[in-house]
Design a protein around this nucleic acid. Structure first.
Length: 574
RNA sequence: CGGCGAUUAGCGCAGUUUGGUAGCGCACUUGGUUUGGGUCCAAGGGGUCGCAGGUUCAAAUCCUGCAUCGCCGACCA
């Protein structure tokens, strides 16, 4: 490709509405342009990267035995009503009616369409297991699109679905997909981790997320430093402390705390260290037979945070978890948030495992502007349950039993689920088994955010000059940058010959034939992140050499022109 | 959906306090100059100042409403 016949579209200045570095660099490097909030046009350079990611994903999916197909973005509402998700899905699902007043949705995912397809086409156990996939545009009306293509309203996703007769069979395919995903991220050249994940509203039992590690990631991941254990922080279990509760040594005593409504104010004004106090959060309980929700108290050590996912899975707690309003709290307890505690509380109390091994601790007295010190479990508070309801913190013992947990941030780029029969049952997708009986299929689903990978790769690979693409997904393998070509007699021929030769050798070459100053060309090539730049200048021509510069290391290699194509190909592709 | 902020040329911004013929840098066009890291000089094109209404002799500037975009949060996956 010659820059003169290309849309390089690089920007010197950073558009002001781009917050994170990948979004800024995608705009500056001429990869994307915003059309509306969460909607982007992919320019040639961006599309090249997107296509390379897709190709790697396809190759590994095919290798793992999955079969590619393509389903429509527009899906009839009937299918969604059959699965029950027409009412379950929120406004994220874009709905509309056509000229005949029939109702449709824009697909945020394709479980319904694929299940409908399979129930019609697959009728015998002999055709199972089967894994089908597509690379396709998904539409989700995100409440808050942000970070460019990282969380867009329209994006490219690889989604795969597998169908089985048994759990064991599903498990085998699930493991194969897990391996295929590892292969994909390995080949993409990214620093990634598979982590144990929550199945969320999709349902099912087993689930892993694949995260690209990056500071800007929206998710926190817990790792063991002593094993392979890694889990999304919302899923990482906080084990019961390995110590028993100390004996009570102090008496229960009330003290006035007019200036303390929070754990940090308690420390500031009264010298109570956060890990010596507990915080009491009031949430709504599971509705009773009359659909009335009571209140439930959650008690955590002062320096710990509530894990809402864990809490709402507790049978006493309503799901989704909802914090009680101040009015309801005052009504039930007679004190405002800021002075709450477990002592004398007449509602179910759930105590976090770590809070449960505290002795002589501090908490609100359930009376405004007053706290208790010297509180002890079983002596001062008798009716309570113990559960894991907190987020793990760095240094906690790993749930796997080996090592301690560290926390890193990640960008979720893949998610695999064992779905079970949620969709196949609702949509009556069965096959005839060996014994001639109809049997509902068991399903798995496997997603990769293809367009998100492009942004995530940049988050992980950039410097002050621009993007540093891993070679497998770079828009170009190398750039030819001739010095003052239009002034030279020798350079145009050499540059053109090398361009042709390198293209014929199978490399993606960007030939910068603009009449620009060298600095402009160097800067552009570094900005768009081409891994190698071949500099052709009068300076080295007398020795019959050209210069190959590595974007990642800055190393310069002098290459003899006569053998340049072979040497460069070996270097770039090696 | 709640809170905050922004909206002036393709991009980045000033001008708004105190109403008086719309500016700067980059980019673009033309000519010259320069040429191994974003040259320099000159000339030029490009804007119903987000939209609608109001106040005023006069509105980018003051008032009201709306829209769009972004940030934080909640929500969702």
């Amino acid at each position: 490709m010659r820059t003169s016949q290309y849309i390089l579209a690089t920007l010197k200045e950073t558009p002001s509405d781009a917050e994170i570095v990948s979004h800024q660099l995608m705009l500056r490097a001429g990869m994307i342009r915003r059309v509306a909030s969460g909607l982007y046009t992919w320019l040639p350079s961006g599309l090249r990267v997107l296509r390379k990611v897709e190709t790697i994903v396809r190759e590994e999916m095919d290798k793992a035995g999955a079969i590619e197909m393509l389903m429509p973005v527009i899906q009839p509402a009937d299918l969604w009503e059959e699965s029950g998700r027409w009412s379950e899905f929120g406004p994220e699902l874009i709905r509309f009616t056509d000229r005949h007043n029939r109702t449709f949705a824009l697909g945020p995912t394709h479980e319904e369409v694929i299940t409908d397809f399979v129930r019609k086409e697959i009728s015998s156990y002999k055709q199972l297991p089967i894994t089908l996939y597509q690379v396709q545009t998904k539409v989700r009306d995100e409440r808050r699109p942000r970070f460019g293509v990282m969380r867009a309203r329209e994006f490219t996703m690889k989604d795969a679905y597998s169908f089985h007769l048994s759990e064991e069979c599903l498990d085998a395919t699930y493991k194969a997909m897990h391996q295929a995903y590892c292969n994909i991220f390995e080949r993409l050249g990214l620093d990634y981790r598979p982590v144990i994940a929550d199945t969320g509203s999709i349902g099912g039992s087993v689930s892993h997320e694949f995260h690209v590690l990056a500071e800007s990631g929206e998710d926190a991941i817990a790792f063991s430093d002593g094993s392979d254990y890694a889990a999304n922080i919302e899923k990482a279990e906080a084990l019961a402390p390995n110590v028993s509760r100390p004996e009570a040594t102090k008496e229960l005593k009330a003290f006035p705390t007019p200036d303390a409504k929070t754990i940090s104010e308690l420390k500031k004004h009264y010298g109570v260290k956060p890990h010596r106090g507990v915080k009491t959060l009031i949430v709504y309980g599971t509705p009773d037979e009359n659909d009335v929700r009571g209140l439930v108290a959650l008690v955590l050590r002062g320096d710990h945070d509530l894990n809402e996912l864990k809490a709402e899975k507790h049978p006493l707690v309503d799901s989704p978890l909802e914090m009680a309003t101040e009015a309801d709290i005052v009504d039930a307890i007679g004190a405002k948030p800021g002075s709450l505690g477990p002592v004398g509380l007449s509602m179910p109390i759930i105590v976090d495992r770590t809070a449960n091994v505290m002795a002589d601790f501090v908490a609100g007295a359930n009376k405004d502007d007053e706290h208790f010190s010297g509180i002890n479990w079983d002596r001062d508070v008798t009716n309570y349950e113990v559960a894991d309801i907190r987020n793990i913190v760095e240094g906690d013992a790993s749930p796997c039993g080996q090592g301690n947990l560290q926390i890193k941030r990640g960008i979720e780029v893949g998610h695999i689920f064992q779905l079970g029969t949620k969709y196949s049952e609702a949509m009556k997708a069965g096959v005839l088994s060996e014994s001639g009986k109809n049997q509902v299929m068991t399903m798995g689903c496997y997603g990769i955010g293809v367009s998100r990978i492009v942004a995530a790769a940049i988050e992980q690979n950039n410097d002050d000059y621009g993007i540093k693409w891993p070679q497998p997904i770079a828009p170009f393998d190398l750039a030819i940058v001739p010095m003052n070509m239009h002034k030279s007699h020798r350079i145009p021929d050499i540059a053109n010959n090398l361009y042709q030769g390198l293209k014929d050798a199978g490399l993606d070459v960007l030939f910068d034939d603009r009449k620009e100053r060298p600095g402009v060309m160097f800067n552009d090539m570094e900005l768009i992140g081409v891994p190698y730049t071949l500099v052709i200048g009068e300076r080295n021509l007398d020795e019959n050499k050209v210069e190959l510069k590595n974007r990642h290391t800055g190393e310069k290699l002098m290459v003899d022109i006569d053998t340049a194509v072979e040497v460069i190909k070996a270097t770039v592709k090696g």
